[in-house]
Design a protein around this nucleic acid. Structure first.
Length: 514
RNA sequence: GGGCCGGUAGCUCAGCCGGUAGAGCACCCGACUUUUAAUCGGAUGGUCGUGGGUUCGAGUCCCACCCGGCCCA
């Protein structure tokens, strides 16, 4: 707690469980056992030990396999002069077997060991009468005493399917997000999500590094925000006595690097948008952006297909990702529609027929209030229709191209139709995943786009791109034709893991203070 | 911001027409030297999200608020 209010603990929590365990800490010290060790040197992980036993074979003349394991006690069955427990580490879990005539005096230590304690255990692997490969412990070392009971469920293994069933586990979503440490400790599948996330990010880095991209770091704390249409977080720098913003995108700084001749750059980092929370939105989220000189959006499209294919192969073993009830296939080429085409063929709306009033009418039909519709320009209206009628129906990776100019102040006009831009978004599993353009490199056009945005802002739009004079100065030095790309890593991980909420792929999602 | 659902023991949940709070697991004590949701016996544990109101009496009914989930905007 950081707000000064005392922790809300029940009497039971404080006085019974915690105090019992504090007494055990004293009892351990009285026996000369330090309950908080400095280090331990395990020889194997639990899963490695089990694999080793399976490899070595059993039966007459088989050699005894001695190992040292470390982990957290997650179950304990005390049978008097012998005790069974399970030890869980990052690789899995293994049963421990303790016998009084094996351990002698040390057996008594088990009375002071609780679920949640960290333990080192050395001994020999064997198979129990009921068939579970286990460690017969010859020496146990307490590594850390747990004072607070973990919300561990009871586990059983279904005899028929071998499936693990958890009873009365830790399922309250609010508690799981607020106490992610407990969630991770008792729900190993949650750890798997974050391990996969790390693998996906590694695969992205490798893909880009292999193609000559340079990973860079640009400011999170900025004197002016930009690169996306969103509201920023503001803060204040005391020494400079100036307002600063947390970035909403990396784009404008990465393009300055293209001006500087870096030619291929990328950045993976947190962006911040001061907006509501939802299943798809966390105020801070992770973005990958890359920029490549001499590319147009078509080149970026091809690279996107290759990159997502590579990531799927790296984390799922193949181009197909199986989620609940559906398979998403990242085998190139991905489907492609223009925005108008998608609205017509998938959404059943012809936005080119009739004027802006006709569009307003259609958006009204979605249930948007008249007042809100009145403030929307043509681009915003089309965006609304697309989000409601088309996006949710695009499950397989699908490129949408030709966005209206008004919605894309940093994109080049489309060759042959200046009302559109050379831009695509990639929709996967019913949500926008990537956004890319042929980057606008005409400083004169860029200035007029900024000025148009300023007019929208004056008209009351709170999500506009402010004029960035320093960025314009950079552009005036000359930016080569460039393809740019952005992708929400959190959403990518949602797709790859089939998690339904962005909070399930962010370790510590934003929560209202307790 | 709106609608719906939820918040009761450490965890997972019951609690009917309003009558003074329950289960399983965990925890504590005891028994048990191959158990595995171990088993058996016993004990402890509650500001029923918060604050008001109605009532002889509120976990239950009413109002406001807080926290969360889903859907919508």
């Amino acid at each position: 707690m950081t707000d000064g209010t005392p922790p809300q603990e029940t009497q039971a929590d404080r006085e019974r469980v915690v105090r019992d365990r504090l007494d055990k800490v004293d009892a351990l010290r009285a026996r000369g056992v330090e309950p908080y060790a400095y280090s331990y040197d395990p020889t194997h992980g639990a899963a490695d030990a089990l694999a080793l036993f399976a490899e070595a074979g059993e039966g007459e003349g088989a050699e005894e396999i001695a190992v040292r394991l470390a982990g957290r006690v997650v179950s304990k069955r005390d049978m008097g002069k012998s005790t069974f427990a399970h030890l869980a580490d990052r690789t899995g879990r293994i049963q421990l077997y303790f016998r009084v005539n094996q351990l002698g005096d040390a057996y008594g230590l088990l009375d002071l060991v609780d679920l949640g304690d960290w333990l080192g255990a050395a001994g020999v692997l064997f198979r129990t009468r009921t068939g579970e490969v286990s460690l017969r412990v010859d020496e146990l070392t307490l590594l850390a005493k747990s004072l607070r009971p973990l919300p561990l469920g009871k586990e059983e293994t279904d005899a028929a399917t071998g499936e693990r069933i958890v009873h009365s586990g830790f399922t309250d979503v609010e508690a799981r997000y607020r106490q992610r440490y407990a969630d991770l400790a008792v729900n190993p599948a949650v750890r798997d999500v974050f391990v996969l996330r790390a693998k996906a990010v590694t695969a992205l880095r490798r893909f880009l590094d292999d193609r000559g991209f340079v990973e860079v770091e640009t400011p999170v704390l900025q004197p002016l925000y930009g690169g996306a249409l969103a509201r920023p977080f503001t803060t204040h720098h005391n020494a400079l006595d100036t307002r600063m913003y947390l970035r909403i995108a990396d784009e404008l700084y990465l393009k300055r690097l293209i001006v500087g001749g870096m030619e291929r750059v990328y950045e993976i980092s947190k962006d911040f948008r001061n907006e509501g929370l939802s299943r798809f939105h966390n105020p801070e989220f992770t973005m990958l952006e890359f920029y490549a000189a001499y590319f147009d959006y078509r080149d970026v499209m091809r690279l996107t297909e290759e990159m997502l294919h590579a990531v799927a192969v790296a984390v799922a073993g193949g181009p197909q990702v199986v989620r609940e009830g559906q398979t998403i296939d990242f085998t190139p080429p991905f489907a492609e529609y223009t925005m108008y085409q998608a609205l017509r063929e998938i959404g059943g709306v012809d936005v080119e027929a009739g004027g802006e009033d006709a569009l307003r009418e259609k958006v009204r039909g979605l249930g948007v209030s008249a007042a809100e519709v009145a403030t929307m320009g043509r681009g915003k209206l089309i965006d609304e229709l697309f989000g409601a009628l088309v996006e949710p129906r695009l499950i397989q990776p699908t490129f949408i191209t030709d966005y209206p100019r008004e919605m894309s102040p940093l994109a080049k006009p489309k060759r042959g139709d200046a009302e559109l831009t050379e831009r695509f978004e990639l929709i996967v599993a019913g949500k926008e995943l990537c956004n890319a353009y042929s980057e606008l490199n005409d400083p004169i056009d860029q200035r007029s786009r900024f000025e148009a945005q300023a007019r929208y802002a004056a008209a009351g739009d709170e999500e506009t791109q402010p004029v960035d004079e320093d960025f314009l100065r950079a552009m005036e030095y000359g930016m080569p034709p460039t393809g740019g790309f952005g992708m929400g890593i959190d959403r990518l991980v949602m797709v790859l893991t089939g998690q339904p909420s962005i909070r399930d792929v962010i370790l510590f999602p934003v929560m209202r203070p307790e």
